[in-house]
Amino acid sequence: MTETAPVGYPPRRSDPVATAGVLAEQLAPGAAATERDGVRRAVLDRFAAGGLHGLLGPAEAGGTGTPVSTYREVAELLAGADGNTWFVWFQHNPVVKLLAASANDALRDRWLRALCTGTTQTGVAYSHVRAPRTVVRADRIPGGWRLTGDVAWCTGWGLADLVLLGATADDGRVVLALVPMVAGPALVPSAPLALAAMGGTSTVGLRLDGLDVADDDVVSVTDGESWAAGDALANANVQPSTFGVARAALAGLRGHDGETAAVLAERLYDVRDRAYRLADERPPADDVEEKLATRAEALLLGVEITSAFLASVGGRGMDLAHPAQRWAREAQFHLIQAQTGAVRAATLARIRAGAA
């Protein structure tokens, strides 16, 4: 891939889908190299130049305030073209949304505009808060919190400027704090993790050895049960990236086996339509079991579609330069990405039902 943008790039910030389409065309040919050599900040800055870091941010803070349908289409395009770059970019979006809703006015004023414009970029490290036991402890100290524990996953280390850390207090409250992504005695990254998928995302583990965080840097402190309930409801819905990988593999399959592609396309667009209708038309707490079952259906269909493409290509599809094997691995990754206990149970239940 080249660092030089083509003439006329980027498209208007008011047309994020067009921007994502241009970027997808540019990124796809080099996706294997990106997985091997790593995502580059210069590419993420091109995303920012096209307005893609502020899709979930308010217009008054420099965001685009685009409809969720637009965000989904952008995410699908990017995930299908280059999963590694998509995943680093993906980390940034929930931080924008959380900061925009934060009661910490000073923190919001300090960072939200920079996050929406992408001049400052973020990663996240709070999936461990979903664990049934405390993984990272938050102890109250004068003027802030002290964080201690081991974080299994932090994506985009060295690519982002800030990281949103999650920790659990003794009373079960969840503390989310926005701190510089800079190594130090109390914030120690591991070497990049060797991963079966998303290996170019600069994902590391973190040791928090008494990291002091000021109240001024705290995005939220939330009752643990309330946080877990909200997280579970949000993650009951299908992630757009699941469909992005499946759509990309389906396009490849059409060139090898149109008959199989037609059958799978009908199933894919049916579940995609149902998934987005459930997310858009039903309140978050309604029909949760149906949402979970639909997510499980979409996840396993993604595995099926990418497997079909790999089978249609044959042995050459196992070359690391070929997208068939990469999409198959990424579909497997989506099985566990943002996975709650309820998502895991729904996925396994669908597998059991299919085997019966």
Rank of each mutant, 00 (worst) to 15 (best):
G210D: 10
D212G: 05
G199S: 15
T222F: 03
G230K: 08
T201R: 08
D231T: 15
E225M: 13
S220H: 12
W227P: 02
V204S: 03
G205H: 06
V218F: 06
V204T: 00
G230C: 07
D215G: 04
D209C: 05
D223M: 00
T222M: 06
S220T: 14
W227V: 06
T222L: 09
D212P: 10
R207F: 04
V221P: 06
G200I: 00
V213I: 11
D231H: 07
V218H: 04
G210T: 13
D216A: 15
D217H: 05
S226C: 11
S202M: 08
G199E: 01
A229W: 12
D209R: 15
S202W: 13
D209Q: 13
V213H: 07
D223Y: 02
L211M: 08
A228Y: 09
D209F: 08
D209I: 04
G230V: 05
G230M: 07
D217C: 02
S226R: 14
D212E: 15
G199A: 13
S202P: 10
V204W: 03
V221W: 04
G205N: 03
L206E: 10
D216T: 14
A229M: 08
A228E: 14
S226G: 09
S220M: 05
D212L: 04
D217W: 09
E225G: 14
V213L: 06
R207Q: 15
V219F: 10
S226V: 12
G199V: 01
A214V: 02
D217F: 06
A228V: 07
T201Y: 02
D212T: 08
L208A: 11
A229H: 14
L208W: 09
G224Y: 10
A228K: 13
G199R: 05
V219H: 06
S226P: 04
V218A: 03
G210A: 05
G200Q: 01
S220E: 15
L211P: 07
D216I: 06
D215V: 10
L208G: 03
T222Y: 10
D212N: 12
G230E: 15
D231Q: 15
S202C: 12
D217G: 11
S220W: 08
D231I: 11
L206P: 12
G200D: 00
T222A: 01
G230I: 10
V219Y: 07
T201I: 05
E225H: 13
D209A: 13
V221N: 02
G199L: 00
G230W: 12
G224L: 08
W227G: 04
T222G: 03
T222P: 08
L206A: 02
S226N: 11
G210F: 04
G224A: 03
G205P: 09
G199T: 02
V218G: 11
V204I: 02
W227L: 00
A229K: 13
S226Y: 06
V218K: 03
D209S: 10
V213T: 06
L206S: 07
R207G: 05
A214D: 14
E225K: 14
G199N: 13
R207H: 11
L211Y: 13
A214P: 09
D209M: 08
A228Q: 14
L206H: 10
L208S: 09
D215W: 09
A229I: 02
D216W: 07
